[in-house]
Nucleic acid binder design. Structure first.
Lengths: 155, 155
DNA sequence: GTTAAACAGTACACTTTCAGTCCTGTTTAA
DNA sequence: TTAAACAGGACTGAAAGTGTACTGTTTAAC
């Protein structure tokens, strides 16, 4: 499996809660944590990170909370992954700028990765948060199932 | 960054050495390790794994070694990743069979990942080993540059 | 038949990364 | 003034990844 971190997965789920709210009202980390049934410290951490990367807007103070910084149609899965994990790429080399790799001039597969990464980037860029939030939500206030605890899975 | 393990990266590079040989002759792990300038134990480990998954054919004994099990045009990057890391997917849930996830029935993004993973699978399936081996090889006997040692990169 | 080269399989130690939590500080509505 | 809520950093335990070593099996060559 090509790994995405669990926090990124959580982040996407949390963002769908914001996206699903038609009024675009503010939601505190506590509310979101309760809704998503995830521990508050973890939710805090994720929302803070997403804010730093410009996907959420924070409001401090007693009635504070978070808002989506952009419309759900304008936020792609690639944006979210980029925010929490850095540029979308499968290998280190294509993340770094040209010339930074010490063995670049003689690598047998140099350049080919660019094409692969570009394809993946496009795939992830084509899926918007609005789509992720849309169809299959049966119970809005429900936990993330993407992460399956090992002990919860049939062997 | 969406992570692929280093061994997978190595594996792809090693396979390109086999693919690049027009005669499809057998190569021992020792030879490949020397050519790729990677430690022999590591190369051994990777080639053994690729053999178990059916991408290479092994021949034991004194003049033994490895061969590609199929033509380079018939081996995709997805095949290689699948062989070393399991099914191509970004999240756990889409790897498991339906029904195995305890929270499946109420996950807000369930099903949407299927689409994303499919897109990525197709992207990786469209790139064949023959393409990876083809164009940019300047010095056939050169090391893998995909992995950039942290200390080798400009900060 | 003996030998040595080469693959097969397993186990292990080391390192790095992830995940989750906690603590202190700042902001702001009531 | 108070308390709710975000900001930022630090820390720890767990998990995964990485590289190596060791023992066993196969087989070509002599």
């Amino acid at each position: 499996m090509i790994r995405m971190t669990r926090l990124t997965d959580y982040g996407i789920v949390l963002l769908t809660y914001f996206a699903r709210d038609p009024d675009h009202t503010m939601h505190s980390a506590r509310d979101v944590a309760t809704t998503a049934r995830l521990p508050l410290p973890t939710v805090n951490k994720i929302l803070k990170a997403l804010t730093r990367k410009g996907l959420l807007i924070s409001h401090r103070g007693v009635k504070g909370g978070y808002n989506l910084a952009r419309a759900p149609e304008e936020i792609s899965v690639a944006d979210i992954i980029t925010a929490t994990e850095g540029p979308v790429a499968l290998t280190q080399c294509t993340v770094s700028l040209p010339g930074l790799c010490v063995q670049e001039s003689c690598c047998p597969v140099h350049g080919n990765w660019q094409k692969i990464n570009e394809a993946i980037r496009q795939a992830l860029d084509g899926v918007k948060l609005s789509e992720m939030a849309r169809p299959l939500a049966r119970q809005p206030g429900s936990p993330n199932k993407n992460i399956v605890p090992r002990e919860a899975r049939v062997s």
